[in-house]
């Protein structure tokens, strides 16, 4: 008789998300939801505005997550979640975590008024933006989250404007908890959601979420791209708790940003000069981080 070796897992085993969801192959937003729910647990209510997850969660009468879910108007995720929390509290339930789960269009653009209002009031909700850097559900149009140089259907020659600094906007609201995450770093993500669950007041997590059809990438490269975004310094893993910033991963020895860009069809026509300028911008940023840190 053989004894099975027990593996110690750092990530909770129970699954609140099921297979058979309606996402594209290699969708970063499904990985994000799966890990998020592992951190959040069963006592959670999800509010989902118009975004890819409107579809991924399943058409009536099916659902790909085993949680109460309320679909909300596009611009209203943060406001709807505000009301859900108030309604639960009015019913005597102060424990349930209320999560607004929105894409970048619903966060950076059309939903920013409701988001800013809820953050300003310090509503006791967790707002999550899975940022796939364009309006992917409507077929890849530029959003405020689209990086410069990226092709989209509405920026066929490449987006001319830099990505909106949403992190700075959110931090300007003096919220108790802010974090970034990306699915290649699963332990980090699960930990941040478990942490966010315990914080009272407005919490915000932005997830960089690769999108194979929108980024023109191979579905099997999603984790690789998620990791490359961090390793090249394009995307920073950090959290800010009550104003105190902590860098979760210091990438002093960064890979060239070209490695990240080259793997994506959306940057195919980005001129070499612009790539060089981007590299300089990234290096400059990390140099100033180092100076501030030392």
């Amino acid at each position: 008789m053989t004894t099975l070796k027990k593996t110690k897992t750092s990530i909770p085993v129970p699954e609140l998300m099921s297979s058979g969801h309606l996402a594209c192959q290699g969708c970063g937003a499904t990985m994000a939801m799966r890990y998020a729910l592992k951190g959040l647990g069963q006592q959670t209510v999800m509010v989902v505005p118009a975004c890819c997850w409107t579809v991924i969660s399943g058409a009536n009468p099916r659902s790909s997550i085993n949680l109460p879910l309320l679909h909300s108007p596009f611009a209203a995720a943060a406001a709807t979640a505000t009301g859900v929390k108030a309604g639960l509290v009015a019913r005597g339930d102060r424990e349930t975590t209320v999560v607004a789960w929105a894409g970048d269009g619903g966060t950076f653009d059309i939903g920013i008024q409701a988001l800013s209002g809820a953050a300003d009031r310090n509503e006791d909700i967790l707002y999550v933006c899975y940022d796939n850097e364009a309006y992917m559900n409507t077929g890849v149009q530029r959003s405020g989250g689209t990086p410069d140089g990226a092709w989209t259907m509405s920026t066929p020659a490449g987006s001319a404007r830099p990505k909106k600094d949403l992190d700075a906007i959110m931090l300007a609201h003096h919220i108790p908890y802010f974090a970034t995450a990306t699915p290649a770093y699963a332990e980090d993500m699960v930990r941040k959601f478990a942490k966010a669950k315990t914080v009272k007041g407005f919490r915000f997590i932005r997830i960089l979420s690769p999108c194979p059809p929108g980024w023109k990438t191979d579905p099997m490269d999603t984790t690789k791209l998620s990791r490359l975004a961090v390793q090249t310094g394009m995307f920073r893993l950090y959290e800010v708790e009550n104003g105190a910033m902590r860098l979760n991963m210091n990438v002093a020895n960064r890979k060239p940003v070209e490695e990240y860009l080259k793997a994506q069809g959306r940057f195919k026509n980005m001129p070499a000069a612009e790539i060089a300028a981007l590299q300089k911008r990234i290096d400059g940023f990390w140099e100033s981080e180092k100076r501030q840190g030392s």
Binding site: V45, V47, S72, A75, A79, T82, G83, A86, G87, G117
Partner: peptide, 17 residues
């Protein structure tokens, strides 16, 4: 709230709760 759109959206959430 910060707008009437959000007022009615918050009531959507509260009433569903």
């Amino acid at each position: 709230a910060e707008s009437e759109h959000s007022v009615m959206a918050a009531l959507l959430g509260a009433s569903t709760a």
